[in-house]
Design a protein around this nucleic acid. Sequence first.
DNA 1: AGGTATCTTAGGTATGACCAAAACATCAGG
DNA 2: CCTGATGTTTTGGTCATACCTAAGATACCT
Lengths: 258, 258
Amino acid sequence: MTSAAGKPSNGRSSMRLDPMEVPKASDVLANELRERILAGEFPEGTVLPPERDLVSQTKMSRTTVREALRILEVQGLIKIKAGRAGGAFVHRPDRESLASSLSLLIRGRQIRLTSLLETREAVEPFCAELAARNRTDEDLAALDDANDRIEKEEGTLADFLQTNVDWHVAVATASHNELLTGFMMALSRAIYAATENEGFINADVRRTAARAHRSITKAIRDRDADAAVRKMRRHVHSYAEAVLKVEQREAITVPNGD
Amino acid sequence: MTSAAGKPSNGRSSMRLDPMEVPKASDVLANELRERILAGEFPEGTVLPPERDLVSQTKMSRTTVREALRILEVQGLIKIKAGRAGGAFVHRPDRESLASSLSLLIRGRQIRLTSLLETREAVEPFCAELAARNRTDEDLAALDDANDRIEKEEGTLADFLQTNVDWHVAVATASHNELLTGFMMALSRAIYAATENEGFINADVRRTAARAHRSITKAIRDRDADAAVRKMRRHVHSYAEAVLKVEQREAITVPNGD
DNA sequence: AGGTATCTTAGGTATGACCAAAACATCAGG
DNA sequence: CCTGATGTTTTGGTCATACCTAAGATACCT
């Protein structure tokens, strides 16, 4: 392979050029628009020029312009609406896009539930700590609300799981760290989805969870960061262990395939 | 607003229809393909049918098919190559997509460096704990390598930061939890970018970091999970504090415009 | 055999036409 | 004057076709 850079033996110029990137036109446009949006040139809610205007401005074809816009839409930077007052509305990326990206990673990589729970064990106690420090009264109200709802034992499994997620997200929100909140929302949703078909959630589990939530909520209310961390750690850890047990049990059971 | 559901008083049928969603054709296709890919119908590396085939199969226009493919590409599910042996290559989403999505969130929401560091304080000690438990010899080798490189004090700021990131990512990798690793890679990269222009990284900071890394690496080597957590917590916390101090100092200093 | 021109397959871009959604303008009837 | 039905206009969504470009495959010529 030493001849890779050999210069031509004929009379041609031996000028060397690195392999050049020929980006696609739509990517170029998308990058340009993305930078401008992120730079704040278009405040949230404003609309980009109509496609046909972009066409005449950029001298690109409408196909290309549309592809660029589609890219930005997938990335959560704009939302496109049809109709007269429609257009490409600038929209700062929210946790939604992070969550969906995470969801893809999880499904695509077949990440196991135990990994999700492990990750939650890393993130959530810290959330609780910050929440105890930074919570506002509204945060508390959200927590209490979720607590109230979760203690109504009627309700389907889906109801329980949703309320459960609500509470956990409320804790994250109370931390007033947007990034951490984003992680937790994405994680919670994924755990929800992965737990949906697990059979280990009985009335007992629900009661235990409700009790733990109350207790942690109290710590957050009292701004007792230490207690919040400790209790949250125990809560998520015991939950993880419960799941693990079921998984192991099911690993022994012969899977009733379909 | 009570008249919203009023039935027509003329002879027309009063059949009620809920507001219907009219998804875009390209989204429909994209969803379909995404599900199939995630379901494993196309193993990694295989190529989807050529665009023109998809057109004839789906009876959609090429524009639509291409938009759908573009969506999947942005989501990291396929990689499109031009040329004869080209096509849409199936590609399981990796941490890359998560990282870029996170990066958008951070830039778009103007998430501050302190939030990033806070989040790291949540995630990384746990990484260290898992690493101490699950590390293999290759993991150790990677850590040692990063350590060696970071101790060569020559090198630009960028070199230092990159090596720093390498080490932290190596710790995450050693945890053998793909999700956690993904988080840390994304986070590290963001912190790198946000730190690049900060002036507080001097030789002293570098030495301190190198020492801490060595020490934590030893704990991981010895499979001493407790020590790994403790030391990592201290390390990232003190780093965060150092940054905070600089930020506060600079908040007092009059910003030198532009 | 070795290099070069050409073929062929696939994606990338450009046009132009037309469809569909949604706000807005208009006008008839109570 | 209000109401409601009916265009009208703006803007995105889709389609069809043609042509350009990348790049592996192949034949061909020396």
